[in-house]
Simulated scan of single mutants.
Amino acid sequence: MVPWLEIGGWVGSALVVWSLTQARVLRFRWLNLTGSVIATIYNVIAGIWPFVAMNAAISLINVYWLQRLYRERHDEAVYTVVEVAPDDAYLLHVLRTHAEDIARFAPHFEAGRTAGRSAFLVQRGDETVGVMVLSDAGRGEALVELDWVSERFRDFTPGEFVHRRSGIFASKGFDRVVVPHAETHDLTYLHRVGFRSDGERWVRDVFA
């Protein structure tokens, strides 16, 4: 067998195996698709038709799910924002369960404090994919203390659904939403949901 062809076969197999180690759903799909396409080509050249059929089917399945994931990533019919009390038992459970991961992305966040806070869960069906916690900083400002996304959906930005519902902030008397530690955020995401740079902070005006 031609050496480059055999190398290609091993690369395809390695990508499929590597994809199975990924927690992020989008990364898993792309790696699995790439590996299965390479494996399909390899098996066509080698004439191993049962594996051609299997890998071609896996490729089509991955294409279907990638199209669906990209189509739904900004769909308000798929993601639901649920406001909960800052001392809600389920919210505290989520914060405890993911405490280590949350600390990596929001090192300034203190989970135990509840006074003056508002909290929101972002749900995809019955799965919690994000948590946002705000605090009243006075002067009509809502301070974003936590804007966390579960690892499975970290390639998406479910927190945007909280920002889209401006009535949430206006009803609480807020005129501005402020991100004080932008270094822990995706700046493309902040731009997309309407934030602008203001010195070391990022600010978004609230419209009723």
Rank of each mutant, 00 (worst) to 15 (best):
D101T: 15
T80N: 08
E76L: 12
F120I: 06
V25M: 11
S171Q: 14
N55S: 01
A111E: 03
N55T: 03
G12K: 04
N62H: 11
L31C: 12
E200D: 15
Q123S: 13
L143C: 13
R201Y: 11
V11L: 12
L5E: 06
A57Y: 11
V133E: 00
F153H: 10
G116K: 04
G140S: 10
R117S: 05
H191V: 09
Y189S: 04
L187P: 11
D147E: 03
I61R: 06
W148Q: 03
V37Q: 06
T184D: 13
F174W: 14
I168T: 02
G35I: 05
G167D: 05
S59I: 08
E110M: 08
H181L: 08
L146K: 07
G194F: 06
E100H: 15
A23L: 12
T114R: 04
F174T: 03
I61S: 07
E151Y: 00
G112P: 05
D186S: 14
A14I: 07
N32T: 03
R27Q: 12
H108G: 04
E200M: 13
V203Q: 10
S13A: 13
T97D: 15
L146W: 05
Y64V: 12
A77P: 03
T80Y: 02
W49Y: 15
G47L: 02
S166V: 02
R71G: 12
V11E: 07
V144G: 06
R68N: 12
F195I: 08
F195K: 14
F161A: 04
V94W: 07
A39N: 14
E141M: 11
D136I: 11
V52S: 10
T21W: 13
S197E: 15
V122D: 00
D75S: 04
G116C: 07
W148F: 14
P158W: 02
T34Q: 07
E151K: 04
L187A: 11
V2G: 14
A182V: 13
Y70I: 04
R24D: 15
A57G: 08
W202T: 07
V133C: 03
V178R: 05
V162G: 05
V203D: 09
I7V: 11
E127V: 02
Y79V: 00
A14Q: 08
G130Y: 02
V44E: 11
R29E: 00
L66R: 02
S171N: 15
F161I: 01
R104H: 14
S166N: 03
H185K: 12
L33D: 01
A111S: 13
E141A: 15
N43I: 02
N55Q: 08
G130P: 00
L26D: 05
L121A: 01
V133H: 01
I41G: 13
K172F: 08
F174H: 12
L66K: 04
V162D: 03
V11C: 08
F153M: 13
R73D: 06
F120H: 09
A170Q: 02
F169Y: 05
A106K: 07
